[in-house]
Design a protein around this nucleic acid. Structure first.
Lengths: 142, 142
DNA sequence: TTTGCTGCAAATCCTTTGCAGAGGT
DNA sequence: ACCTCTGCAAAGGATTTGCAGCAAA
């Protein structure tokens, strides 16, 4: 396990990370729990969730969805880019001068039949940048 | 409201769509519910959720997060691309020949301080392509 | 008239949390 | 010894669903 400041090396944490890194299927907490349980039968879901959270905050792993608990909706159904604030969770449209040549890339993508995409930039919104302090918020990216 | 086959024109649906299209803040179901309630005080959360789902399936609006209910985790914390299957929900890494020059674009992005991004392609995985029938699954993109 | 839609309330499902004891440093 | 981490179980919160009546088409 990559050494991390502050985080202790526990058996549970080690196995969770090991199992997660072993696969490329991007499991849910629940699926990972079942994988880990084969090695540590007495581990609890709470431990899995807590570690996933700590590891993501620490930048060792990442959550695929950065959102909080609720989903957000957009009245504009066409493909465009979003910016999500790490700290306050706000999402804004990204108005960028240069447009990413996504269509070129999509054609080269593997065996999936692509119907669309989501591109989300993660960072700090202007308001949160200003009050940028050392403390971290609930949200984590990975 | 854009005419859609099969969907009836109800007052509730109309106001939900109208309120959603009025803003660019990408509200959650809950936030939208409060917006709509100012016009239709007796509307219920269930109606909001059901309509959001129908409208997203119909392609009139989009959900920002395409995932199902559970979040997924990735042992690889560096920025890379994902492919999510609309039908079965599986997520795979996108191994593409051409890499998108994201860094160039990020510099031009508005007032956010960017720390990373998520790029997710949406489509049908090889397995689901094969058994591609007329029926639609639970998952919807928008 | 037919069949989809709504409000209400209960149910479900994922995730988080409090607590007391165990374990890493 | 100190303080984080764990297992367990309960709590919390978002979303879904069953149902009976209502309303588009």
């Amino acid at each position: 396990m990559r050494p991390s400041p502050r985080l202790r090396k526990t058996k549970q944490r080690y196995v969770i990370l090991e199992e997660l890194c072993k696969v490329t299927c991007h499991p849910s907490a629940d699926e990972l729990y079942n994988m880990v349980r084969r090695k540590l039968p007495r581990i609890s879901m709470g431990t899995v969730y807590r570690n996933l959270d700590l590891l993501a905050r620490d930048g060792v792993i990442q959550r695929l969805e950065i959102s909080g608990t609720q989903k957000r909706f957009d009245g504009n159904a066409s493909n465009h880019y979003h910016m999500r604030c790490l700290r306050c969770g706000k999402v804004a449209d990204a108005h960028m001068k240069k447009v990413i040549p996504m269509e070129d890339v999509i054609k080269e993508v593997t065996d999936f039949e692509i119907v669309g995409y989501r591109l989300e930039f993660i960072g700090l919104c202007p308001q949160c940048r200003r009050k940028k302090s050392g403390c971290h918020e609930k949200t984590s990216t990975g």
